[in-house]
Structures are given as structure tokens and as C-alpha cells.
Amino acid sequence: MTTTVPITLTINGALHQAFVQPWHTLLHVLRDVLHFTGTKRGCNQGICGACSVIVDGEVVRGCLSIAANCQGRTITTIEGLANGNTLSNVQQAFLELGAVQCGYCMPGMIIAATALLKRTPKPTEEEIREGLSGNLCRCSGYVKVVRAVQVASERGTS
């Protein structure tokens, strides 16, 4: 027997409703039901970080969050960071520093960096590496990613 669960989520400032199965993850609902496809599926095991989203102010794994358990929560995805055509500080720094290659890990990486800077506005290099340690990238070697977060931090939040 299955039970469909109705949920309401605030995603990037707008209310969304969906009917979900108990085993559906937030990642599934974001991507396959509500079509917020910016959030990526890389491993579905909570290891790679491509599915990182911010739920009630904290970065979590979309693939390990049960959607039904997110009822009423406020979610920020990669689509919600820019203000119109104005990129967020983190996005702008990633762009300028050339931190982006294939881009598949980048939504999760940028979400994790955004959450990191919210918690620690002026992180050390070590704190940046630790803060992004759960986001795998196979292209960049991380050097430019870490530098981009440093630059974003120097420019202040937002």
C-alpha cells in the first residue's frame, strides 16, 4: 500500500505544491516533478554534493532529504541565487575566476559556498576547503573554486 503525501514548499520565494510518494526525495521532486533541473543528480548516495540545496538556511543533500519531510520548508536552489540578471557574489566570482568547467557539480558547489559564507563570512583557505569538502568536482582540481570563494568573501555577502 502506498500513500501519496501532499506537500507545499517555498522554493526560491514562490510556493509550490506537489503530491509525492513517501520514498521520493527532495531532489526527485525538485527535478522531475517541479522541473528545477539546476540541481543535479550525481550519485544519489549523498557523497558527491551535486544535489546540494539550502533548506531553512542550511545546506543539505537533496538526494537524502525525503520530500514529504520537507513540508512547509523554505528551499533555495541554484535557480534562486541570482537577482534577475545580477549574479550573486559567489556566482560572479566563480565566473570571473574561471572556476567552472563542465558545470555539472557547480550548482551544488555554489550552493555549498553560499551556505559557507553565510555561516563564516570571512573563512580561511582551510575553512573554505573544509566547507566545500563534500562537493566533488572532477574537472577543476579545486584551485580556482577555492580562490573564487575567497574573492566572493572579500567582496562581502549577497
Binding site: G49, S52, V59, R61, L64, A112, G134
Partner: peptide, 9 residues
């Protein structure tokens, strides 16, 4: 334990 996102969950 794990990484920041895991520790938040």
C-alpha cells in the same frame, strides 16, 4: 562526520 551538508542533516 562526513561533510557540512551531512552534518546539517
Amino acid at each position: 562526520i562526513g561533510h557540512p551538508a551531512i552534518r546539517n542533516m
